[in-house]
Every structure is written in structure tokens, then in C-alpha cells.
Amino acid sequence: MSTVARNLRVVRRMTAAEIAQQSVYRGAWIIFMLANICMPIISLLIWRTALSNGAQLPVDERYITTYFVLLGFVTMATSSWMAAFLANDIRLGKLSSWMVRPASLLVGFVANNLSEKFLKLFALVPMIGIVWWIFRDSMNIPAGPGRWALFAVSIVLGAVLVFTIDILIAALAFWMDDVGALVQARVIISSVLSGAVVPLALMPTWSRGFVDHQPFRFTVSFPVEIVAGQLTGRELLAGFGIQLGYVVVLGVIARLVWSAGIRAYSAVGA
């Protein structure tokens, strides 16, 4: 059996097991998702007030509304929280017990990521639905399933991208004692550069060249833009090209760093 097929089977089994385990905390997921949509709703109300008060924004009310209603969903769907845990497993030597197993330690983290997101969906989708219904008159809803399919594809690519960045940061634990500060820096930088705080369309003109091409745009903003914005066919093609490029390049780097780390690894307590 090929390695890929085996790993996929392990991921599937572990995801099912994780879902069973995590559903014990279903109340907590509902409350966490409530916290997750607080910030987008606050931002939505603030920017709509600015618009109705005569602020000259480069985007219209429909864009702003659609953007912030979908934002909570996309940040959840592409998020990753494993960097600190993975770094701990490397530092404290839990990696050792996985090195003699027929699957990578990372498989467990993939399963954890997928299962939590699966459960969060049940809490989050109804909440987004309610907000959507309240603002239904000023939502941009693309006709036909084409845009929604692209939206889904770019969310998957975005999720892979965030996960890869986290592997890269956590893998530094092979050489460093504490990557906590780096993890925190990643969270803070990406919150602004991904468009999770303010839509990137509202960033100042002088920063656009950088903002539009840096990797974090493709972790949150790009998927939302596909639905909320009027991206032309050309822009869509370029966007997907850059997104795929980042996934491949960062994936290759993560792969190299990870295998270099495994070679440099000397387990604690072994």
C-alpha cells in the first residue's frame, strides 16, 4: 500500500476518534464560536456607521457587509492552533514515540484540526446564518454555484497554507528552546495582514503592492474577496496562482526544515 493512502487512512480513523472525543465539549464549542463572531460583528457595525455618515470608502456597503459576515467563518475554517503544541511535543520528546510508528506525528495534528473544525461548523453556521439574515438586504450573493466552488477551493488552500506556516514555526523547536514568542508574533502579524481586523481593500494606497501579494492575504482575505468583491477573471486566476504558489513553496520549505529537524533531533529523556 502506498504511503499516501496509508497516511490518509490513518487521518480518517484519527479524525473520527477525535470527533467522538471532542464532542464531549460541544457546549464549549458553541461559546467559543460566539466569541469568534464578536469582533467581525463589531467591525461590521462600525464600518457601516462610517459609510452612512458619509465616509468615502473605496468599497461599498454591500462589500463591507458581505466581508464581515463571512469573515468569522473563513477565519475559523483556515485557522490553526497547533504550533505551540507541536513545539512542545518536539521539546519534551513526545515525538520519539511517533518516530517508531508507521505514521507521522503531524497526522495527529491534522486529525485534531479537521475534527475541531467539523464540530465548530455546527455551532458557527447557524450564528453566521442569523447575522446574514439580519443584513440580507445588503449582502453580495454571487449568482450560480461557480463563485461558491472557488470560495471553497480557496478556503482549503488557505487552511493548508496556515497549517504549513505553523509547521514551519513549530519545527524551529528542533533548534530553539522556546518558540512561544514566534507563535504569538505570527498570530499578531497575521491578524492584520490577513484582513481579519480590517479588510485589506481599506489599507492605504501606498501599501497595496505589498499587501496584495504577501502570503497572509491568501489565508483569509482572498477567499472572502471571491464572494464579497468583484474580482475579475484575470484577478481570480492571478490570485489562485499566487495562493497555490505559496502553498507549494512553503510546503517544500516546511518539508525540508522538518526533515533537517528530524535528523538534528535528540530526544529529551530518551
Binding site: N53, V197, P204
Partner: peptide, 11 residues
Amino acid sequence: IVPTLLLFGFT
């Protein structure tokens, strides 16, 4: 403070 500064860039 970033959202506030950006907001008052437009009004």
C-alpha cells in the same frame, strides 16, 4: 488603534 486610524483616513 489601526482600524480607528484607517477609518479617519476616509472621513
